[in-house]
C-alpha cells in the first residue's frame, strides 16, 4: 500500500511537485549567484566559473538532478492539470474566482508552461552553444606589447597563446577547446569557452539584442508569479503549515519570488544598456 501510494496518489504527486519545485528554487539561487558575475566579475572569472560548472563531478550530478527535476516538475504538472480538468467536466456559466484566490495560484500551469518554453530557448541559446557548438569561440585577450596590440587566447593554466598561431595553422583547435601543435600533433593547452562573449553578444546584438532583453525580462515576470504562489505552496504541500512559521515562510517566499527574478532580469538589462 504505502509504496504504490507514494507513486500514484494525488497527494504523492503534490509531494514530488513540491520537492522538485523547491530543489529548482535552490538551483535558481545558485544559478543567479553565478550569473551575477556577468555584472560583478570579469570575463575570465565568468568563463572559469563556466568551466567549473561543466566539469566538476558534484556539480554535474546536481545538474542532472536539475534536469530531472525540471522534466519531472513539468510532467507531473501536466498530469495534475489533466486530472484537474477532468474533475470538472461541465464548467460554470458565471465565475468569480478573484473573490477567493490569487491569479497566480490559479494559473500555475500556464505560468509553468511559459517558463518551460523560456527554459528551452534559454538552453538553446546558451547551454547548447556551450556544450555542442563547434564554432564556440574561445576567450581571447588583447595585450599591448611594446605598443603593438596582440591578441592571445587565454589558457586554463593561466598562460597565453598567440591567436596568430592558430590563424597560421601552426596550432590547431581540437575538441573545441584543446590547442594542438599542428606539426607534432601534441596537445599544448586548453582554452576557455567564451560564454561571457556569447552572452554579451546575444544581448548586445544590434538587431535582436533589445528584443532578447525584453523577452528575458518578461520571462522573469512569469517566473516571479510562478514563485509567488509556488514557494509557499510547496511548503503547504509538504505539510509545513504552522501559525508560528507561516509568516516567515510567506515573507521569505515573497521576497525570494520577487528578488531572484528581479536580479536575474537586471543582468540582460545591464548588458544591453550599460555594459560596454
Amino acid at each position: 500500500m504505502a509504496k504504490s501510494a507514494l507513486l500514484k496518489s494525488s497527494l504523492a504527486k503534490k509531494y514530488w511537485m513540491a520537492l522538485t519545485g523547491l530543489f529548482l528554487c535552490l538551483f535558481l539561487a545558485g544559478h543567479l549567484a553565478g550569473n551575477l558575475q556577468l555584472i560583478f566579475g570579469d570575463a575570465l572569472q565568468f568563463n572559469q566559473y563556466a568551466v567549473f560548472m561543466t566539469t566538476n563531478p558534484a556539480v554535474k550530478l546536481l545538474s542532472y538532478v536539475t534536469y530531472i527535476s525540471i522534466v519531472f516538475h513539468a510532467i507531473d504538472g501536466i498530469l495534475l492539470t489533466i486530472q484537474n480538468r477532468k474533475a470538472r467536466p461541465i464548467g460554470y456559466a458565471k465565475e468569480n474566482p478573484s473573490a477567493n484566490s490569487h491569479w497566480a495560484s490559479r494559473n500555475m500551469a500556464i505560468l509553468g508552461s511559459l517558463i518551460l518554453i523560456f527554459i528551452i530557448t534559454h538552453m538553446v541559446n546558451f547551454w547548447a552553444v556551450m556544450h555542442f557548438d563547434e564554432n564556440m569561440p574561445l576567450q581571447t585577450t588583447t595585450i599591448d606589447i611594446a605598443g603593438q596590440k596582440q591578441e592571445f587566447y587565454l589558457t586554463t593554466d593561466g598562460g597565453y597563446l598567440p591567436k596568430i598561431q592558430v590563424e597560421q595553422k601552426a596550432v590547431l583547435i581540437k575538441n573545441r577547446t584543446e590547442f594542438f601543435d599542428a606539426a607534432a600533433n601534441v596537445k599544448l593547452k586548453d582554452g576557455y569557452k567564451d560564454l561571457h562573449k556569447i552572452t554579451f553578444d546575444y544581448f548586445q546584438d544590434a538587431k535582436y539584442g533589445l528584443i532578447a532583453t525584453i523577452m528575458y525580462v518578461l520571462a522573469m515576470f512569469v517566473l516571479a508569479f510562478h514563485l509567488l504562489h509556488g514557494f509557499a505552496s510547496a511548503f503547504q504541500s509538504l505539510g509545513v503549515n504552522h501559525p508560528k512559521y507561516n509568516g516567515f515562510i510567506r515573507v521569505f517566499g515573497k521576497g525570494f519570488a520577487i528578488l531572484v527574478p528581479l536580479l536575474f532580469a537586471t543582468i540582460p538589462v545591464y548588458i544591453h544598456f550599460f555594459a560596454k
Binding site: 503534490k14 484537474n84 474533475a87 477567493n100 484566490s101
Partner: peptide, 20 residues
C-alpha cells in the same frame, strides 16, 4: 491512506493550494 485512496477514486481533482 484509505480516505485519500477513496477520494482519488471518486474523481476529485488535486489540491493546488489556491486557498479558494
Amino acid at each position: 491512506l484509505n480516505m485519500v485512496r477513496q477520494m482519488d477514486e471518486e474523481g476529485f481533482g488535486n489540491c493546488t493550494n489556491t486557498g479558494a
